[in-house]
């Protein structure tokens, strides 16, 4: 742990992807495009981000679809490497929660809990102790030995969240995790956890379209727009700014 309690640090972080578009037409055209690289395109998903997240902080990330939010999460976790000149570091164990990912559909809830927990560094003996708590938190008592492929999205989300909470990840990164799932009861329980997380000194990075959660819990919010950081500040400040950018964007789209 560094002295200044910074757990995630991004310095001059940019991320450019090179992709090849599919070429339509005959074989000659295709081979020429392949050889010359004429169908190559560079996409700057994230541009020059500087950001520090402190231990115990709740950071919200907002922005329109395709503005680079998910890429930014991947850069934070170190799964993506930033372009030359930028550095990204993360300190502590983390788990990234996103919908549809994170579990193996061929495995039962029990097997997934043990696998994910173990990979996160929790000993099996400890998982034995916490197993019931995890199942109860996720309210999946009737589905312990059911394969995940039969689970609904909401059930998966509950399980992932329960594992993240009980495996005691230092940092929880949520990528539009609650988007459209979880009933009011589950939301209320996750709210409880958000509050407790501060007490335990856990760090949360929350990418969301749910302004209510961001407004209520975030210490700071980052606004991304087309890969650039448009502002970092208090929820009220940034959410106003966000509404404005959306308005401007809608207007400019109408003009086009």
């Amino acid at each position: 742990m560094s002295e200044d309690n910074v757990v995630i640090r991004l310095e001059n972080v940019s991320k450019t992807f090179t992709i090849r578009d599919k070429v339509s037409g005959n074989l000659l055209k295709k081979s020429w495009a392949f050889a010359s690289g004429g169908n190559k395109r560079r996409i700057e998903a994230v541009k020059n981000i500087n950001l520090e997240v402190k231990k115990g902080e709740f950071l919200g990330i907002v922005g329109a679809n395709g503005c680079g939010k998910s890429t930014l999460i991947h850069l934070m976790t170190g799964v993506y490497k930033p372009d030359k000149g930028g550095t990204a570091s993360i300190d502590g164990t983390y788990i990234r929660l996103s919908l549809g990912l994170g579990f193996n559909g061929q495995l039962t809830a029990r097997e997934n809990i043990y696998l994910n927990g173990s990979v996160m560094g929790v000993k099996i003996s400890e998982l034995n102790k916490n197993f019931r708590k995890i199942i109860e938190f996720a309210e999946l008592q009737k589905f312990v030995n059911t394969k995940l492929k039969y689970f609904s999205r909401g059930m998966r989300a509950r399980l992932a969240f329960a594992v993240a909470v009980h495996a005691e990840a230092d940092i929880i990164l949520m990528d539009e995790f609650f988007g459209g799932v979880g009933d009011e009861r589950f939301k209320a329980r996750s709210d409880e956890i958000f509050q407790k997380a501060f007490v335990n000194g856990r760090t949360i990075v929350h990418v969301s379209h749910n302004m209510r959660t961001i407004k209520q819990y975030a210490d700071r919010v980052v606004l991304l727009h087309e890969g650039e950081c448009r502002g970092i500040g208090s929820p009220d400040e940034i959410l106003d700014l966000y509404r404005e950018t959306i308005k401007v964007r809608r207007l400019s789209m109408r003009e086009e």
């Binding site: 991947h74 170190g78 799964v79 993360i90 788990i95 996103s98």
Partner: peptide, 14 residues
């Protein structure tokens, strides 16, 4: 193993 590699910090050689 993408579902683990992408989401959790551990030694990827494992």
């Amino acid at each position: 193993k993408r579902y683990l590699l992408e989401n959790i910090r551990f030694n990827k050689l494992d």
